[in-house]
Design a binder for these strands. Structure first.
Lengths: 130, 130
DNA sequence: AGGATATTGCAAGCGGCTTGCGAGTCGTCG
DNA sequence: CGACGACTCGCAAGCCGCTTGCAATATCCT
């Protein structure tokens, strides 16, 4: 099964390059239609899935906004959701750096292998415009 | 609008008291039917919503298992999901204790107000039985 | 250019959750 | 204690986000 190049898929990838943050399916659909105005929802879903399986995208489950997708391959990071504009940003740094593994006191016998951290607050642009 | 006592709601609350961990709607439904065998899905959804609005329950959005509910009012804690049995546990302790607020390096202008941490690994009972 | 087939758009389908409705249960008041 | 009003329940239909079957279209290879 050979992968073909289509305007739809190219448009979707372009949307992610233009917006350097996790995006919802709806955002991808709307932004993608600026390039391919017939772009269909099913096509977006199918391509997001394809790009994720192929490792180009990464699916994120957010606590409040449902599923978002971000470009994969970035270094370990977490997410920040602005409670004003609801945009989600990627933030570097990690409270569980190697020397802090034990910070979260797990009960005896439990072993943690990975983690996800979600921060909530106000982003810089919302704070300035308030 | 006066709240009435019903066997259904009592059964649902009992399920949470019997299992001291976050539960899915389906788990509540199945376990609740042991006490009220006619218990209906819609009733469970309605009561979980009611109990949440009233502050007795808290809704949790997990990255992999969807929505769970836990008894509210506990002190600040996070969650641990066992990748073997998929159960979610509450874990005390927090990598963002007061003296470590700045561990996650937020960009300038960003202000964090709250956070959620989700750990993944192996729980004690799965580790022993392996 | 021509043919094989990946991909798209559309519409139907699916699963989780919600809601309208008539029946049933709970609590109160006479 | 019995009856009425209102909250709840169970059921079925509905809604929403996502997936899938299918015919038409676009790509790619020769």
């Amino acid at each position: 099964m050979m992968r073909r190049k289509t305007n739809q898929r190219a448009a979707i990838q372009e949307v992610f390059r233009d917006n350097d943050r996790p995006l919802s399916v709806e955002e991808v659909l709307q932004a993608g239609r600026k390039a391919v105005e017939t772009l269909n929802q099913a096509t977006v879903y199918r391509n997001l899935k394809m790009l994720t399986e192929e490792g180009w995208l990464k699916k994120i489950n957010t606590p409040e906004l449902g599923v978002l997708y971000e470009v994969a391959g970035k270094k370990h990071h977490h997410h920040f959701q602005c409670r004003s504009c609801d945009r989600v940003y990627e933030v570097e740094g990690c409270a569980f750096a190697d020397d802090r593994r034990s910070l979260c006191g797990l009960p005896p016998g439990f072993v943690a292998e990975s983690h996800e951290i979600f921060l909530f607050g106000i982003c810089a642009s919302c704070r300035l415009s308030a």
